[in-house]
């Protein structure tokens, strides 16, 4: 009996010791509450808690503001002086971009190859990621890692081989050339992100579907894809962004017909000097598609950066 009591006492001792981290955690939350309280006091007392975030946001937004600011100025005003906001507000630059086919075709071809690339990357990566997530095969782990190493090489080193290969088969200067070239780094990325999301789905769901009589393609489309819909969204977003911001391959593999917007921008350097207002407006319009896509997947991006392994 006495032994039992001793044991119980010892156990309590252990429990008390074990509660150390819990107390520490409680302490941390107390401190957090304290910080909040101080912040409230600070607000009342006119403290300076807001300085750092404000500075951060100012520095972050300043270049973007300046770009927008410039896009509404005339080139003469940009070159002539330094003003915080347009003195002679003009939308001339935007009108030029939206009415001149050379300009807006730049956007059209950029968006075309980006979309083609996104569709190809996701479509190809889905079954590949499924295989990596569900099956064990010879060298699977090495192959999976090797995929990622494809991203370690700068895309520029592939520009020359792509240029010659695509010229040889008549793909040069088409959106397909750029879209396929971007697959080089987008498919590995897509496989990695999707694999993470797929591994989060229990294998038993696959088996239950097979037992229910689903064939693999039907199971994949009807049951599996809805389960990783957010993963597919995030993957598509990353493919879109990487393809959208990649300029070197896009410029090298196109000449006239499929010229991306980045290449069109070089047109602003003419014999009469730089048309800076036009360049700024084109820059603003280049940010827009990315911002729109980010808006749609904003809730899942963090998960995507963790490759689905949250």
């Amino acid at each position: 009996m006495a032994q039992v009591k001793q044991d119980a006492a010892r156990n309590r001792g252990i429990l008390l010791r074990d509660s150390g981290p819990a107390q520490a955690a409680a302490g941390a939350s107390d401190r957090a509450a304290g910080t909040r309280a101080r912040r409230r006091r600070g607000r009342e007392g006119g403290g300076f808690w807001w300085i750092v975030p404000t500075l951060y946001i100012v520095f972050l937004m300043l270049p973007i503001y300046w770009l927008i600011n410039m896009s509404f100025k005339t080139t003469n005003e940009i070159l002539g002086g330094f003003s915080l906001w347009p003195q002679n507000f003009t939308i001339e630059s935007y009108v030029e971009i939206f009415t001149n086919p050379v300009w807006y075709n730049g956007y059209v071809s950029s968006i075309t190859y980006v979309l083609i690339n996104t569709v190809i990357s996701v479509t190809v990566a889905l079954p590949a990621a499924y295989a990596f997530s569900r099956y064990r095969f010879l060298g699977d782990k090495h192959l999976f890692f090797w995929l990622l190493t494809n991203r370690m090489a700068p895309p520029a080193i592939f520009a020359l081989p792509f240029y010659q290969l695509y010229s040889a088969i008549g793909l040069f200067d088409t959106p397909w050339a750029v879209a396929l070239a971007h697959c080089l780094f987008n498919i590995p990325l897509a496989v990695w992100i999707l694999e993470g999301f797929m591994s989060g789905v229990p294998k038993e769901i696959d088996e239950t579907a097979y037992i229910d009589g689903y064939s693999w393609p039907r199971f994949f489309v009807k049951i599996f894809m809805p389960l990783i819909a957010s993963g597919i969204g995030v993957t598509a977003f990353f493919c879109f962004m990487f393809s959208w911001v990649e300029l070197l391959l896009a410029k090298t593999l196109t000449a006239v017909d499929a010229k991306p917007i980045a290449a069109v921008m070089t047109r602003t350097a003419s014999t009469s000097g730089y048309e800076l207002g036009l360049l700024a407006a084109a820059g603003v319009l280049t940010i827009v598609p990315g911002a729109v896509v980010i808006w749609f997947v904003r809730n899942y991006i963090a998960k995507g950066f963790a490759l689905g392994r949250v």
Partner: peptide
């Protein structure tokens, strides 16, 4: 397994999360 007449229930609760309960039951 698709061609056999088998039904199986796992220890973990395995359903199709994207479907309603009705569609889950109706699925086979």
């Amino acid at each position: 397994v698709q061609k056999r007449s088998v039904a199986m229930v796992y220890q973990q609760f395995i359903n199709y999360p994207a479907m309603s309960v009705y569609e889950n039951i109706a699925s086979p």
